[in-house]
């Protein structure tokens, strides 16, 4: 199995996926905590017309993708919590896919590009892209690190945080920009449509299993990294797409965490039933 590391594209894929998993696991944790997973899901879709539009005017799709998601991130944070936010976000999401389709229509020679953008192409990542990902990931994580303390406070107790002088508005805009950066990184691995699996599944699993913040974030990152490693290995062995394995494993871990919850509840219920009897005996 270690023969897979003989291939340059496999080494690149592992490096890229690991870098992205570190970012997705940590950003995703805050995304789930703040109940903004749908916004994150929509952001990735905006990347689609960004990338196809960029190719159309002759610039790098990665640049178009990043700029579009970042702008959409700012837009979403400005809508704030106002009414029908979900509807607005959902419409932007579908409009984005529609626009992306239109741009592709004008640029017919890029038939494979649509699939790569929508579902990812981790095995096609070049050494140069790995370096770009590394730099962007570092920037993203440094910004997240700088804002994480007030962000945690504002996510858990917004009313109190506001009173304590935390700049709620600018903070949520900064966070959405960070999410946008993380999203354009994740698109490189799993594509526009499947970002949710990598950003949300590990974080949501971790939030169900732990009661401590630091442990939770470590678990989320650990899960994200394990998922991409397992997926690449499985893809190598089965020849099925890596992105499929990432979605399958992400969902499986989440399902297991819910199952663990059910067992815990059952055990507590059983204790409650047998507890007093044991005392009598």
């Amino acid at each position: 199995m270690f023969a897979m590391f003989d291939y340059e594209f496999m080494r690149n894929a592992f490096a890229a996926a690991t870098i992205v998993a570190l970012v997705a696991g940590s950003i995703g944790y805050f995304l789930v905590l703040r109940g903004e997973t749908f916004a994150g899901h929509a952001l990735s879709h905006v990347g689609f017309p960004g990338a196809t539009g960029a190719v159309l005017i002759g610039i790098s799709p990665f640049v178009g993708l990043t700029v579009f998601t970042a702008l959409a991130g700012i837009g979403i944070s400005l809508i704030g919590e106002r009414g029908q936010r979900d509807v607005a976000i959902g419409l932007v999401l579908t409009l984005s896919l529609g626009l992306g389709l239109l741009f592709l229509h004008f640029y017919t020679s890029y038939a494979g590009m649509a699939t790569n953008l929508l579902f990812g192409n981790v095995l096609g990542i070049s050494r140069q892209t790995v370096w770009v990902l590394l730099v962007m990931a570092a920037v993203t994580l440094i910004v997240l690190g700088a804002i994480s303390r007030p962000l945690l406070f504002a996510s858990l107790q917004p009313e109190l945080a506001e009173a304590k002088g935390v700049p709620i508005g600018p903070l949520s805009t900064a966070f959405m920009i960070v999410v946008a950066l993380a999203t354009s990184l994740a698109i490189q691995i799993v594509g526009v449509l499947l970002v949710f699996a990598l950003m949300v599944a590990p974080a949501a699993t971790s939030l169900r299993l732990t009661r401590h913040f630091a442990l939770g974030i470590a678990l989320s990152v650990g899960l994200a990294v394990s998922i991409v490693w397992m997926s690449l290995t499985l893809a190598y062995v089965t020849d099925w797409p890596t992105s499929f394995w990432i979605t399958a494993l992400g969902s499986a871990f989440y399902a297991l965490s819910r199952l663990a919850d059910v067992f815990k509840t059952l055990r507590v219920a059983k204790l409650a039933r047998t507890g007093p009897l044991e005392k009598i005996a």
């Binding site: 994480s148 504002a154 939030l207 009661r211």
Partner: peptide, 24 residues
């Protein structure tokens, strides 16, 4: 806050000096 799986201790720690920048 009410629906969270965090312990009370974690909640209080996150709020204390939560207006400072940096890692929590």
């Amino acid at each position: 806050a009410a629906q969270l799986n965090f312990t009370g201790f974690e909640l209080l720690l996150s709020a204390y000096a939560g207006n400072r920048w940096g890692l929590p």
